[in-house]
Design a protein around this nucleic acid. Structure first.
Lengths: 147, 147
DNA sequence: CCGAAAATCACCCTAAAGTAGGACTCGCCG
DNA sequence: CGGCGAGTCCTACTTTAGGGTGATTTTCGG
């Protein structure tokens, strides 16, 4: 609102200035049309400037809305693993892979050897039809196996 | 550009109209100040309208990017990479990694050698503070670098 | 035009991941 | 009881990733 008042004042000053100039030089030398055209051009420019200003400040608000990320609720479909023949252990390991853990870390977490994790993940990849862990994560997410 | 021309024409017509009115009624009855003030007001309004129009069309694009949180394929936050010092190429490679591609596949896609892809991904991992590609995908998603 | 950043590629080495096959245990079910 | 699925673990091998260093070329802003 401050801004509006300021601009209004500026417009008034400009208007007064033009009026002053008018009486001193213009009106006596040039026809009224030119004076009118001049005023029109100047105030059009001013108006456009004001319009852009206002809109820009509004745009900031929009960007604020951008910051809100959608938190789509993950519905863990308990039936999905069964359909694909994925065992609970394989499902569990998929979850840990999706968290960026290495096979060794997963083994330590589950108290099994790295080889076991490899076996499980191999079976998992086969069932998901992939051959890399990133792909497994993508596929698992698509199938609703992991959030 | 079409829009600008159209608005210019409209402005011209309005000016002509005012000029016409002026000679018929106004000038003989009221002082020039009032005429000037009228022109100023009208063109200020016109200018504000134009300014808002232009800006609004820009605004709408932003909003539309926001309103599609689920099905956005490659609409990414263009500001984020800069904050983290991530180059366009690194950003691009992050996207391909997130699609489950191997370094070799990425190299073939981008017509560069596998070594180059490795170099980029190493720098990328360093900037993201990770050391595995799955973690890079997670981090990238958290930071809004990838959908 | 210079210099910094970016992009490209190479080489070497290690670690991690993935593939293939076999083997053992355990619990469950017909 | 015998077989089956699940889980565990192994060896051996190949491929993929990742780390480090160094070099050249492009690109771009001052």
């Amino acid at each position: 609102m401050k801004r509006v008042i300021l601009y209004s004042l500026a417009g008034g000053v400009l208007l007064a200035l033009l009026k002053f100039i008018e009486y001193k030089h213009f009106v006596h030398a040039y026809p009224t049309e030119i004076y009118g055209g001049l005023v029109a051009v100047i105030f059009s420019a001013l108006g456009v400037y004001l319009g852009l200003r206002w809109a820009r400040s509004r745009e900031v608000v929009v960007i604020q809305e951008v910051r809100v990320p959608e938190a789509l609720p993950f519905v863990l479909d308990a039936g999905k693993p069964k359909e694909l023949g994925i065992t609970p252990r394989e499902h569990e390991i998929l979850g840990l892979i999706a968290q960026g853990m290495s096979n060794r870390e997963i083994g330590e977490r589950l108290f099994v050897s790295e080889n076991t994790v490899k076996t499980h993940s191999s079976h998992l990849f086969e069932k998901l039809g992939v051959n890399r862990r990133v792909q497994a994560v993508i596929k698992g997410r698509e199938l609703g196996l992991i959030p």
